[in-house]
Structure formats: C-alpha cells, structure tokens
Amino acid sequence: MHDLLIAPFTEFGFLRRALVGCLALSVSAPVLGVFLVLRRMSLTADVLAHGALPGVALGFLIAGMAAPALWLGGLVAGLVVAVGAGALSRATGGREDATLAALYLVALGLGVAMISMGGGGALDLTHILFGSVLGVDDAALLLMASVATLSLVVLAFAWRPLVLECFDPSFAAAAGARGGLWHLVFQGLVVLNVLSAFQALGTLMAVGLMMLPAIAARHWAREVGGMAYAAVGIALLASVSGILFSYHLDVPTGPAIVLIAGAAWAASVLVGPVDGLLPRLLRRRHLAG
C-alpha cells in the first residue's frame, strides 16, 4: 500500500511538484467550471485551450520547454481566438459558436504543424498536447499556485454578482450589479486557469480538471455553493489518483487525470443522489405529501 500510494511522492521531487500543482488547480478551476456549466458555456473553455496551441508552439520553437515562453504564447493565442471570434461574428453576422469552432480547429492544426516542422520530436508533441509531470518545474508550480490563489480571492468578491447575473440578468442590471463587468473578469480567470493547467495536463486535456468535476457535481448538490464544494472534492481526488495512475502505468498525466475525473463523473451519473440513474431505478414509493 505504502509503495503504491506514498512512495512515488517521497522518492521523486518532480511527482511532488506535479501533485502540489494539480491540487492547487483543483481548488480553483472546478469552481469556474461550475459557473461555465450554469451559463451553458461548457465548451468555451475547451475552445480557449485548443486555440492557445499555436502560441504555445511558437513559445516552444523559440525557447524550448521553458514555462514562461510557453505560457505567454498560449495567453496571447488564447485571447486572440476568444476575442477574435466575438469580433468576427459581430462584424460578419455569423453565429459566434460557429466562428469559434472554425478558429480553434485552424489553431489546433497550425499548432501541431508548427511543433512538427520546428524539429520537435514526437515526444515533445506528446508532452505539449497531453502534459507531463516533468513539465511542472518550479516556475510552472509557482504559476499554478499564484493563479489558484488569485482565482479564489477574486471569486470571493465575484460570487454574488456571478450568481445574480446567471440567475436573473435583468434583475442584476436593474439592481446595478454590473453583471457584464463581472462576466469579463470571470472569463479572464477561466483563461488563466486553463493556461496554468496545460503544463501538467497538456493543451488538449487542460480543461478536463475544470469541466468534468463541475459536470459531475450537479449530481451531488442542489445549490450552487454545494456544487462548488463537490466539484473541488472530485477534482482533488482525480488529481491524486490520476498522478499515481500516470506514474505506475506510464500514461501521460493529462489523460490519466481526465480518465479518473471521467470515472468520477460516470459514477456520479449512476449513483449521485440528485437526478442519478440508480435512485431513479429504485423507484421508491412516492411520499404522502
């Protein structure tokens, strides 16, 4: 038991760094995920993460696997795709989701082509797309912890306005809650969290730790606060077991963590007390009143 669960972390510093980084991420990202689900924006974070790839690739070509360059490139490219899609669809009258899809597909193709052409081997490509525990160096760890801290502080202030804006936008406007401004702040946090995730999880999987626990949380609580706690709990669990899974079976960390989070989601759908399948199949007799 000790060998299986504890020894990998006491033995290897890089595993400890990846673990701490993912735990930090697990505290902030799933909470944002809960609001993305409630705003019917479940796919937005995914588009941002994919769209960041050409920037990450450019950073890689210039500076190798160094965190700041990858991160800066990803930030710029992600913002270009997100803001560009909105501006382009307003200018041409198309639907924003269609423009987003077009831009991120192009970005994904471009990113993979750039890494391959730039002499990056298959190994580098795998690391960038699917993450690697080795990617979490001190700089990346510091970044993940800072982003998580910042996100929690901002969320504490943004909580009421976000709930108000999601639940009843016209009331929020009438009450002067500045819902639009808080929404922008919220989107900024999503971009930061996705980017801080990609060194450990890879650009393709960065969103997994944000969305899967958030989607599963619906089956564990009836109020948005409870859903946030449930999502964080699931994400913490997925981080620890995902990294162990990745180490023992030699799978990239991104898919490992996402698979565990996915299993937690499937379990929630099956046995979760709110709208789960099992409670429905049991068909307990209706109450008297």
Partner: peptide
C-alpha cells in the same frame, strides 16, 4: 428572463433583494 433551472434556494433569491445594502461583499 429568469433561469429557473439555476440551482439556488428560495431564501437566497429573496436575499438578492438586499443587494442595494449588501452589494457584492
């Protein structure tokens, strides 16, 4: 204009009326 699928309890909705005094924080 209301999202009735939003997971929020009745008392919390009523307390949104306190916004002018409570604000965000």
């Amino acid at each position: 204009s209301l999202d009735r699928a939003f997971p929020i309890a009745c008392l919390d909705v009523v307390m949104q009326g306190l916004w002018a005094r409570s604000g965000a924080f």
